[in-house]
Structures are given as structure tokens and as C-alpha cells.
Design a protein around this nucleic acid. Structure first.
Length: 478
RNA sequence: CGGGACGUAGCGCAGUUUGGCUAGCGCGCAGCGUUCGGGACGCUGAGGUCGCGGGUUCAAAUCCCGCCGUCCCGACCA
């Protein structure tokens, strides 16, 4: 039987994560601290996700554009909360062309400032609104404790920036894009995430309100998978983005911004992976099917049958890999593809050729089935649909199992240490009570008043016992 | 950025305490042959600035100083 290839999740989840990122050839560390080399297999996952998101972003009326990597330091300083929030994690360029710069340039940690500077020149009239822009880019935030995909100093993301004539429109946009994220996370990444608002403490620096998509990983910790911000008029005022209304009066625009990053690759790894490796949802799997001819005396004919099957599967619209490395033993090849999380593996050996069948193995359950060749294409298509759904169902079930209602602070603190998960409680809204939740537990409010239905919380605050104004979802997080 | 552990071949490690000839082992890699229904085997072979820089010494992987990087725990975060 198989020797252990990865540290088991139960033994050491962070070690398991590092093992699987390395062994599935997703990514490795770059030479400078906090940097990441995304390997082809990992990058393909990102590309597939990117393609799906890009279509959705365009379908909701947004256009892609590109803004500069370097931003004058003074731009950051225009919005007080913004600069305060980002200062600790800025990378600053002080020299260029061998000379000290008159004004330092920051490497964008996010692009609100450059983009809004530009918006102020683009927007004159209500006829120019709304402006709906998206950018695919890299950003830099100096990280003190990096982890591949989850938190790297440089990461890839998509950032949407919009400007609207009314507050209502901006609010609607904020929630619309949150919904797009929730849907993509659910339908493509197969993760049943929670959506809701961030507490003021967790809010984006410069936003009036921040909404989040929070996923739960297999170790019971939460991961912020995307955010959507209602920026109000904060940046409009800082960058003087003004439009003339129909009646000639002048107004500042109302704005939003929203983004998801390569962290989502980390989310897929941790939400679905098991002790055998990745389990990729077919929607974003670089290869949805791997076809493995077996060697032996009949190698020639099994390889031929495998190649024919690959052609047929490709014709049916699937992403397929032929693994005809006959110099590598069967077990090794099987283990490789399990590590890499390919949803369906097809084995064709001499016995199959004789009986006119092939063995179809699904990665999520590792179940094997012998399937007749005539039904193979159809069966595999069905399996892929089933696997996509099964992975989602698993995360949904797991989230429900690991969501508990809690009303006693001491009990909460002892319980969350032993059983990580989502804890639903009442919260009075005060920052001191929010701190009290995290004190000694390392947990934080992941979101408040989630849109998904959760067990109803106590009407009183978990910490101070005053009347609760919010339902808080508390968890340890990445 | 604080506390702790660590850095020797692509990966995992021994050797460092007590300085001493040509720095070893397993996996992986290359060639040949035999194999293939859950990490195959034999033979042959390649691969090392011992993280980087300085210092001590007749002599440094080994001792001292500085820096870089990794992992864990905290504080900060997509």
C-alpha cells in the first residue's frame, strides 16, 4: 500500500499545505522573502479562474484597463484612513536611474489612488457615469509572515473600481460584485462560502463599508476569499472627482472597489485537499481527466486505445492529459495524479482491452468503476458534473457541522481552541467587545449579519451581555 | 517586527558538541536491461561555492561576528 507522501492533515495542517503545494508543483518561494514563483500547474488554475471571473466582470458591464505600478507617495497621503491603513505594508522606491527621486514612489498596494486621480479627469458630467473599470495586476504589500498563495508580498489579483452618481447605485454595485464573487466561489471553486459585512475594525482602509466572502478550510479556520467595498465619497473628495448633474449642480461621485487574488488558489487547496493531495473542482482543473495506459506486453495497444480516448474526450470538450510514461511504474503515476488532484483518472490495461472496458477512478472519493468503452465518454462527463457538485456539497456540510451557536464567552474560548470552526454570537458593536472575542483565542469576527442563513444568535452580546446589534461570525482565520 | 528552531547535491538527512586526508547516506536524476492493475528492480554514472560575507587558525561544514533565507509562536494583513 501507499507510503505516506504528505504529512497528514490531522498531524499538522500547515505542514500538509506546504507539502502539497510543493509536491503538486503549484508554487515555490522566490529568492526574496515573501515572493512566490507560481509554477505552470498552479498558474493554470489561476488562469482558468481568471478567465471565468473576467467573463463575469465583463458581463456585468465592466471594462478592463491598466494603471501604473508606481504611485507618487503624495497620492497615498490624500486619503487619511487609506494611508494610515497601508503605510506599514508599503514598498517604497527612493532611487531611479541611479539618482535619489525628488518624491518617493510607492509600489501599488492597491490602486484606488492612481485610478481615482485618473477618474477625476475622466468624469465631468452625469453622462460620464457610471464608470466601471477592472484591472488585472500585481500588487505589493510588505508581509511579515508570508505563506505561499495565502499571504505573499507580491500577489496577483483583479481590482474593480467604479464611480456612480448616487449612493444607492454604489451600494447596489458593491453587493452585486460580492454576489459575483460568491457565485464564482460556489460554482467554480465549489466552496460554500459565507458572505456578509466586515466589522469596522476589519474594514478596508478608506471604505465606508466592506463586505466579504469567507470560506471555511478543512481545518476549521476561515479564509477571506474576496472583498467588496462601498467607498462612499471618501476618495471622490480626496481626489476631487466631481460631476455636473442634470440641473447643473456639482456633486462628488459615489464609489466602489472590489477584488480577489491568487489567494483563491490557496483556498481551493485547503478547502478540498485530503491526505492524498489536491482535489480540484473540474471547473478549474488544468486537466479534468488523465488517461493512463498500462504497460506490459500489450503496451502498444493500450497506448493506442488511450490516445483514441484522449481524442474523443477532447472532442467532447474536456481538458485531458495522456500519461504514457511507461518507464514510470503504475503506482507512481497514479499517486502523481492524485497529488495533483485531477478529478477523473482513466486506466486502460490489457484486461480492459480484452473486455472492452476501462477503469474510471474519481479523485474525490477514490472510487473505481469498470466502464464499457461505448459508455465511457458519457460516464466521464457525468462524473465531472458529479464531482463538481460533490465537492461543493462537502464544504457545505462541513460548514454546517462546524458552525455553532455560542452565548457564553468562557465556553467559547475553551471550545474554539479544541474545535476550530465558525462561532455565531450576538455582538453589541463595540470595538472593546470585538477585542475580547479575540483575546486569548486568536479568533476574530469574520463577518457580521451574514446573508446566508445561520442558526439565530442570542439577543445579547457575547462579551458584555448588553443588547446585541449584530450577529457576529467568529473564527480563527488565515 | 519580537521569541524560538534551522540552513550540507533537486528533495530528506548524517557529519558540527571535541576543527584534521578525497564531505557521506536515502530518494530523485542520466544510460542500459528487465518490469507495469497502487510510489518496481539490477548494473553503471553524473551531481557539492557545506546559505552569503568577514574573522580566528598551520588547518573551518565544524569556532566567532554580521547579513540573507526557511519554519513555528505572537503583533499586522487580499
Amino acid at each position: 500500500m501507499a507510503k505516506p507522501i504528505l504529512t497528514s492533515q490531522d498531524t499538522d495542517f500547515p505542514q500538509w499545505y506546504q507539502d502539497v503545494v510543493a509536491k503538486a508543483e503549484l508554487a515555490e518561494n522566490g529568492p526574496a522573502r515573501g515572493t512566490i514563483v507560481i509554477r505552470p500547474y498552479g498558474y493554470r488554475i489561476w488562469e482558468l479562474l481568471q478567465q471565468i471571473l473576467d467573463e463575469r466582470i465583463k458581463a456585468t458591464g465592466h471594462e478592463n484597463a491598466y494603471f501604473p505600478l508606481f504611485i507618487p507617495m503624495s497620492f497615498l497621503e490624500r486619503e487619511a484612513d487609506h494611508v494610515e491603513g497601508f503605510s506599514p505594508e508599503l514598498a517604497v522606491v527612493t532611487h531611479g536611474g541611479g539618482k535619489e527621486l525628488g518624491e518617493p514612489l510607492v509600489v501599488r498596494p492597491t490602486s484606488e489612488t492612481v485610478i481615482n486621480h485618473t477618474f477625476s479627469r475622466w468624469i465631468q458630467s452625469h453622462r460620464d457615469l457610471p464608470v466601471l473599470i477592472n484591472q488585472w495586476a500585481n500588487v505589493v504589500r510588505w508581509e511579515l509572515r508570508p505563506r505561499l498563495f495565502l499571504r505573499t508580498t507580491e500577489f496577483l489579483w483583479q481590482e474593480g473600481h467604479t464611480a456612480h452618481a448616487t449612493s444607492e447605485e454604489a451600494q447596489e454595485e458593491t453587493l452585486k460584485m460580492l454576489g459575483v464573487y460568491r457565485d464564482v466561489v460556489r460554482e467554480s471553486l465549489a466552496i460554500a462560502a459565507l458572505t456578509g459585512e466586515k466589522s469596522p475594525a476589519e474594514r478596508f482602509a478608506g471604505a465606508d463599508r466592506t463586505f466579504t466572502v469567507e470560506g471555511m478550510m478543512r481545518d476549521g479556520k476561515a479564509l477571506q476569499m474576496g472583498t467588496s467595498h462601498d467607498l462612499g465619497q471618501n476618495f471622490a473628495k480626496a481626489f476631487d472627482i466631481v460631476f455636473a448633474a442634470e440641473d447643473g449642480s456639482e456633486h462628488h461621485v459615489w464609489q466602489t472597489s472590489w477584488g480577489v487574488s491568487t489567494r483563491l488558489v490557496g483556498a481551493v487547496i485547503m478547502a478540498h485537499g485530503d491526505d492524498f493531495g489536491l482535489r480540484l473542482p473540474p471547473a478549474i482543473a488544468p486537466y479534468q481527466v488523465v488517461v493512463m495506459p498500462l504497460g506490459g506486453d500489450d503496451a502498444q495497444s493500450t497506448v493506442e486505445a488511450a490516445m483514441q480516448l484522449v481524442r474523443d474526450l477532447e472532442a467532447a470538450g474536456h481538458r485531458v492529459k495522456l500519461d504514457d510514461r511507461l518507464h514510470v511504474g503504475f503506482g507512481r503515476r497514479a499517486v502523481d495524479w492524485e497529488l495533483k488532484g485531477v478529478p477523473v483518472r482513466v486506466e486502460i490495461g490489457p484486461r480492459d482491452l480484452e473486455s472492452g472496458t476501462a477503469v474510471v477512478v474519481r479523485r474525490d472519493t477514490r472510487e473505481k468503476a469498470s466502464v464499457e468503452l461505448e459508455r465511457l465518454i458519457q460516464t466521464i462527463g457525468e462524473r465531472l458534473v458529479e464531482i463538481q457538485q460533490a465537492l461543493l456539497d462537502e464544504t457545505e456540510a462541513q460548514r454546517l457541522t462546524r458552525t455553532s451557536l455560542i452565548s457564553d464567552l468562557d465556553e467559547f474560548k475553551s471550545t474554539i481552541a479544541a474545535e476550530p470552526g465558525l462561532y455565531v454570537a450576538g455582538w453589541c458593536g463595540s470595538a472593546s467587545c470585538e477585542e475580547a472575542f479575540g483575546d486569548g483565542t486568536g479568533a476574530s469576527i469574520r463577518c457580521i449579519d451574514p446573508f446566508e442563513e445561520l442558526p439565530g444568535s442570542e439577543p445579547r452580546c457575547l462579551a458584555c451581555d448588553n443588547l446585541a446589534s449584530h450577529q457576529a461570525v467568529i473564527a480563527k482565520a488565515y
